[in-house]
């Protein structure tokens, strides 16, 4: 079953086409990695799916045009983890995770019900944040802040999780932890992940499918094995990526 279909997506900033006629789809259980050099249009595709930028073409969720969905309905299906989290004030971890339930509110006067509270508690537990629930996010480390917003996304419980460089700025332990958390989340039925990554090793290790972009156009799209070939990567990055990766990792062999 196709969860998300993106057909002939084009995004322009002025006259410049940042994303040019890109088509792809995501099915249940898939983890689609979007890779490509800087400025290839990776994050812009995510912004279009979350309706953050105007676009041409169509984006369908289970066959429905997302432009026809209310913002709350879209949020129940599609959740986004941004790349940077610059929180302005001293909100607590729990207050931020609570907001993940915004799309489920029953009315403007109603508070959270028991279902919301269970979802929040469970999200905090899965992300390992129980002990930090009442701490201010301004006093947390980068990894803990990232897990806070991931927990918000768990509480939001969308069908598709959209992640923009989830491991950026994180040290190795947190990178591993973050990808493993997302992998566990994806294991439940009816879910899919779309994830922008810089690091091709991460794309290969965790992704099932890959969309390789070059200057806003699709260079290749399919399973990770079919897309991340020496030829495809050479065409996009203009260097022998395989040889470079072997040299980088070969240093560690003793």
């Amino acid at each position: 079953m196709k969860l998300l279909e993106v057909n002939n997506l084009t995004v322009k900033y002025g006259d410049h086409k940042v994303v040019d006629n890109v088509t792809f789809s995501v099915e249940e259980g898939q983890w689609l990695m979007i890779a490509g050099p800087n400025g290839a249009g990776k994050s812009t595709i995510l912004n279009a799916i979350s309706r953050g930028v105007p676009y041409e073409g169509e984006i369908l969720f289970r066959g429905t045009d997302i432009r026809k969905l209310r913002t709350t309905a879209l949020a129940r299906h599609v959740g986004v983890l941004a790349q940077n989290h610059m929180v302005g004030y001293e909100f607590t971890v729990q207050e931020i995770v609570n907001l993940g339930r915004y799309a489920y509110r029953k009315g403007i006067m109603k508070g959270q019900d028991a279902g919301d509270e269970t979802a929040v508690r469970e999200a905090l537990r899965v992300a390992g944040l129980q002990d930090l629930a009442y701490k201010s996010v301004l006093h947390l480390s980068g990894g803990e802040v990232q897990r806070t917003f991931l927990a918000q996304l768990f509480a939001q419980n969308p069908d598709i999780m959209i992640l923009d460089e989830p491991a950026n700025h994180l040290d190795l332990v947190y990178q591993k932890q973050t990808f493993e958390l997302i992998g566990k989340w994806l294991a439940a039925p009816g879910r899919a992940v779309i994830c922008v990554v810089h690091d091709l090793s991460q794309a290969r290790a965790y992704g099932s499918h890959c969309l390789l972009l070059d200057h806003g156009k699709t260079a290749s799209c399919g399973t990770v094995r079919d897309v991340l070939t020496p030829e495809n990567l050479h065409a996009v990055y203009d260097m022998d990526v395989y040889a470079w990766m072997r040299r980088m990792l070969g240093q560690w062999e003793e």
Binding site: T71, L74, V80, E95, L99, G100, F149
Partner: peptide, 24 residues
């Protein structure tokens, strides 16, 4: 006062507010 939750979302960040379903 009825927009307290939405203001919380904006105070945390506009991108985050959009993601959780606030009609920005």
């Amino acid at each position: 006062l009825l927009h307290a939750r939405e203001l919380n979302a904006f105070a945390i960040g506009e991108d985050n507010a959009r993601s959780i379903g606030v009609n920005i």
